[in-house]
Design a binder for these strands. Structure first.
Length: 303
DNA sequence: AAACGGACCAACCGCTCACAG
DNA sequence: ACTGTGAGCGGTTGGTCCGTT
C-alpha cells in the first residue's frame, strides 16, 4: 500500500530471534543506548529491520521486564484500566511497570476477555450482558428494551455469541450519558489536548493529546492489603471508584504516557457522592418504552 | 502413538502521528 | 504548506505447545 515493508529493501531476516541475534542487539543497546532504530541493525550487525529490533528490545530484551504470570493485582488493574481506556494497550502498559503492551494485549485476548464473558460481563463495555428489559442504546441514540419475545435469543458482542437475553433492570441514564463516543467514562478519565498539559518527565510523549485519570494510583503505590480487600468480582461499574477509595491517590507517572492528577480534592468524598447518586438513580424510571420491541445486531451500547 | 484442535505468545503488518528538510 | 521518514501503536498472523481423542 505505497509503503514497502522493511524486509523488501534488502534480504532481511524474519521470524524468531536467535540467541546470537539477541546478544548482538542487547550488547549494542546496553553499550550505546536507544537512539535511531533504523540504524541499529547496521551498527549492531543484524540482518533485521529497525522496527523488528525495536520490538525485540521493547518486548523481550529490556532489562526491566517483569516476565512471568500476572498477579491478581495486575489483572484487576488491567480490567479497570481497560474499562477506562479501551484498547489503548500502550497506555495501560504504562501503568504496569515491567509489562509490555504486547504482553498485556495477549493476556487480555487469551484470558481476561474470555473470563469476563464467562462472568456475564461484556468485555467491551465492562457492563453486564444485557438481558430482556434492559435499555439497549441504538446507533441513533434511542433506547430499546429487549422484549419477552426476544427472551432466550442469543446476544452478540463483536459478532461473538455471548449469552441470551433475559430480563434485568436497566441502568440509570445519567451514568450512561457520561460515556464519550469512544465508550470511555468521563468520571474516570479526562481527555485533553492542551499544550500546558504535556506530560512531565515523559520524553517519549510528543503529543499533547491523551487521557489523564481524574485520580489513579500507580501500581507501585498500591497497598496490597487494601487492594485485595476491594471486591471487583461483581463487574461493578464503579470498580475504579472502589479502587480509588482503597488506596492513596498519587500524581504518579514518571514513566508513563498517562498523567494522573488529583482533580478530585477528595476521592473518597467524591466516591461517596457518586455511589449515593448512583444508588438513588438505580431505582430507575424506564424511559422510552414504546421503542421496546426492536432488537438490532451491531455496535449497540448497553446501559 | 498419531492426529487433531485450541490456547498462547512472539513477531509482523499497516496505519497514524510527529518532525525535519 | 508540502513531503519523506522514523517511531510507535493496535490488530492480526502463524508457529509452538499441550491436552484430548
Amino acid at each position: 500500500m505505497g509503503r514497502h515493508s522493511c524486509t523488501e529493501k534488502e534480504k532481511l531476516r524474519k521470524g524468531l530471534w536467535s540467541p546470537d541475534e539477541d546478544e548482538k542487539l542487547s550488547n549494542f543497546i546496553t553499550r550505546f543506548g536507544v537512539g535511531c532504530w533504523s540504524s541499529v541493525p547496521k551498527l549492531a550487525g543484524l540482518q533485521r529491520c529497525g522496527k523488528s529490533c525495536r520490538l525485540r528490545w521493547v518486548n523481550y530484551l529490556r532489562p526491566d521486564l517483569k516476565r512471568g504470570m500476572f498477579s491478581q493485582e495486575e489483572e484487576d488493574l488491567i480490567i479497570s484500566l481497560h474499562e477506562a481506556l479501551g484498547n489503548r494497550w500502550a497506555q495501560i502498559a504504562a501503568q504496569l511497570p515491567g509489562r509490555t503492551d504486547n504482553e498485556i494485549k495477549n493476556f487480555w485476548n487469551s484470558y481476561l476477555k474470555k473470563k469476563m464473558i464467562k462472568q456475564g460481563i461484556d468485555p467491551t463495555t465492562h457492563k453486564p450482558v444485557p438481558k430482556t428489559g434492559d435499555h439497549i442504546q441504538q446507533p441513533n441514540g434511542l433506547l430499546n428494551l429487549a422484549t419477552s419475545d426476544e427472551m432466550g435469543q442469543e446476544f452478540c458482542v463483536n459478532n461473538m455469541i455471548c449469552g441470551q437475553k433475559e430480563y434485568d433492570p436497566p441502568f440509570l441514564s445519567e451514568y450512561e450519558d457520561s460515556f464519550d463516543p469512544n465508550g470511555h467514562h468521563s468520571n474516570f478519565v479526562t481527555e485533553y489536548d492542551d499544550p500546558n498539559n504535556q506530560i512531565e518527565g515523559n520524553p517519549n510523549s510528543n503529543s499533547n493529546y491523551g487521557f489523564k485519570f481524574n485520580s489513579m494510583p500507580d501500581l507501585a503505590n498500591i497497598d496490597p492489603g487494601n487492594f485485595m480487600d476491594t471486591d471487583f468480582s461483581d463487574g461493578s461499574t464503579s470498580r475504579i471508584f472502589s479502587y480509588l477509595s482503597s488506596s492513596n491517590s498519587s500524581n504518579v507517572s514518571s514513566h508513563t504516557g498517562i498523567q494522573t492528577s488529583n482533580m478530585m480534592p477528595n476521592s473518597e468524598q467524591y466516591l461517596w457522592d457518586f455511589d449515593k447518586k448512583f444508588e438513588s438513580r438505580f431505582q430507575f424510571q424506564i424511559k422510552n418504552e414504546e421503542n421496546s420491541n426492536s432488537w438490532q445486531e451491531g455496535p449497540s451500547r448497553y446501559i
